[in-house]
Nucleic acid binder design. Structure first.
Lengths: 217, 217, 217, 217
DNA sequence: CATGAATGAGTATTCATTCAT
DNA sequence: TATGAATGAATACTCATTCAT
């Protein structure tokens, strides 16, 4: 009597995973509102009703993708990094991990998080935002510790955190992995720019603050 | 769609301008696909047909908004800045101008450019992209001159340009003008971070490059 | 004291006539439902409201065009022909007159009558149909007299009338005045075919060709 | 739009067929532009979206109807007739077949072809026109052979073809099957008129009436 | 005589979703 | 699991028409 083993094998991607991946790609390419369930079912070679067998609703699907992206980020980046004691080392590892995730691993799911999070409503939206805020607080804390340790200048930790996020979250808009720079080289250059800035020099902090004020005034 | 304008009173905003502003706000809040022409006409206190008296199509409206945002940017930021001879002064003025535009003047129109430019097709899309590329080339050139002048470290001008763009373009996601920081203060801090980076120190360039490599390896 | 003479000059086409002509062309090209008042005003170089200054409604405009086409037909064809005593001569003159009107004079207005008369409703529709029926009755009477006179075979006058109408009304679908045949030649051939048919008879071909030429000359 | 058909019971008309028939009737009654998809879905007892499950677009629906009408014509009329060697017999059979198709079998689909073919655009239009031209060329060839065989007078084959088409295509405008004439009688009379014309010849009327009856019987 | 602005009803079409099979 | 058929509500857009100026 043959035992029906219903797709237990892990190497064959589950329908669920297949749907997530395809939907993530479509939401990325056309936006959440711009990608229809018909587009998705076509891309999957299923009927629309077939897709609905696996998901609850389009919004749940979006939430699922974002939650998956978040899990990727948290397990692949945050987890390895949160425990690093030295704030400088921790910051560098965070930037590198985040950049590499964005350029290499799950770009679609993560990009969707950035651009479609206000397509989410109510509870779902709040859950995703909570996880985002957690990351921001982690960054701010790291910058504060870096200042306290004497390694960093007296920068604004909030501004620095969002500056760093902006810099990383913009990557997908321009970076092509088959271009001039490898992911590692990109990460190196971004770490370097974040840590030391553009200008040459030793006690230049005071100098250039003056220059900025001058140019503006 | 009316082309002739004979409106005598300049101080009363034209319907055209009113539509642009309202649409920019809606496209910003809900996305281009997410905001319907019904939403727009409701917000304007007109019927849908009334709106269509003034615009050609939703896509043309989007293009109009983006072109307007671009004109704002070019006339209020680029124009004043392109002629500055000293590259450092020029960079600082550019960052300040761009940040202030984004935080103060026409945030909606400019934000729409960032997020909805792939809702545009064909000719319109190409025109907007061309103007974006022009700005990027201007930034890269400025960074190159800065390096050549000896003021900047041997950074990657392309990466630096996109890092700067990402940092500025992310602002609308978190900055609130009624918060702790004024627009001027925000601009100051961003200029400072971009120029001198996070870390303290004199000949720190060499130092921290080492730190980055260490943290990664 | 100057006497205001408001466009009495006949040689300058009145707005009314201009609108009729342009509308007839558009209704012909795109159908009554397919041609919009916007198309019409554009083609006239006026605004829609400008057009409405001269007409009551789109349906009235259609009725006006059809009535004009009917008047053309009645004054240029029927009037000259109704009084001809000899039924053969009368039939030939009618066919020739109708064909030449359709190919030469007012093709648009007349074509519109054929194709858009069920776009008309109520009273208007009935009026146009009454004039059509009057023509059909005239044709049937002519055929009956032709049979009674001994010139025609014992054909069915109704079928013959509609056959003749179909043959003429189809002309606009294929005949091009700049082609191989002149309008006169076309009329000749149709008269000939109607009178003598396709097959070779005894000597009636030559006979009636003469009759046709006579009736026309 | 479903492509696969697995309907086992052949006798129950498919939705597809039901839609085609109803749409053909509506396009006929109100014209393509005048009949709305709402009219169609109402007539079918479906929602508009329900109709769109079965068709691609209104234009494709029109094309489908016309192609179906063309297939009817080609399979029911042309196919049986193209192989007839004798040109007179062939002409008579063609007229009879065409008239009977128009009066009896699929009047709506065929009528739509006549009146709405310029509602079609591009590829679709060209395909339908190509099939029309093929028929016209067949008619012209038949007339030429008839002349060459010595049976017909030296008429113009092009004019004769279009005259015949006009005569048949006009039928739907006036003929009512429940009237005085049966379809067969109508066909008889039209064949007779086309072949022998209106006028009395010498003895060819009797002759060719016999020929017509022979060709038909 | 003509216009720009506006409208209410309607256009074809697409949406996410459901359900009997 | 999956499907074909269906739906109600929405989509962008167009229509003929009106009216104050």
């Amino acid at each position: 009597m043959p035992v029906k083993k219903k797709r237990t094998r892990v190497d064959r991607p589950t329908r669920q995973a297949q749907i997530f991946e395809t939907a993530a790609r479509l939401f990325c390419e056309r936006g959440f509102e711009g990608a229809s369930m018909g587009d998705l079912s076509d891309a999957l070679g299923l009927t629309k009703a077939g897709v609905y067998h696996h998901i609850g609703s389009k919004e749940e699907l979006l939430y699922g993708i974002m939650a998956y992206g978040m899990e990727m980020f948290e397990s692949k980046v945050l987890k390895d990094v949160e425990t690093i004691a030295d704030p400088l080392e921790r910051l560098v590892a965070t930037v590198r991990g985040h950049v590499l995730l964005v350029t290499r691993d799950r770009p679609k799911e993560v990009t969707v998080i950035l651009h479609e999070s206000n397509a989410l409503r109510g509870r779902y939206r709040e859950r995703i935002n909570a996880r985002k805020r957690r990351y921001i607080r982690f960054l701010e804390k790291t910058f504060r510790e870096l200042i306290a340790s004497g390694a960093a200048r007296r920068i604004d930790p909030v501004v620095a955190s969002y500056m760093m996020l902006g810099m990383i979250n913009w990557i997908y808009q321009w970076y092509r992995p088959d271009g001039r720079l490898s992911e590692q080289e990109l990460a190196d250059r971004l770490v370097d720019l974040l840590l030391h800035g553009v200008l040459k020099g030793n006690d230049n902090a005071a100098q250039s603050r003056g220059a900025a004020a001058e140019a503006h005034g």
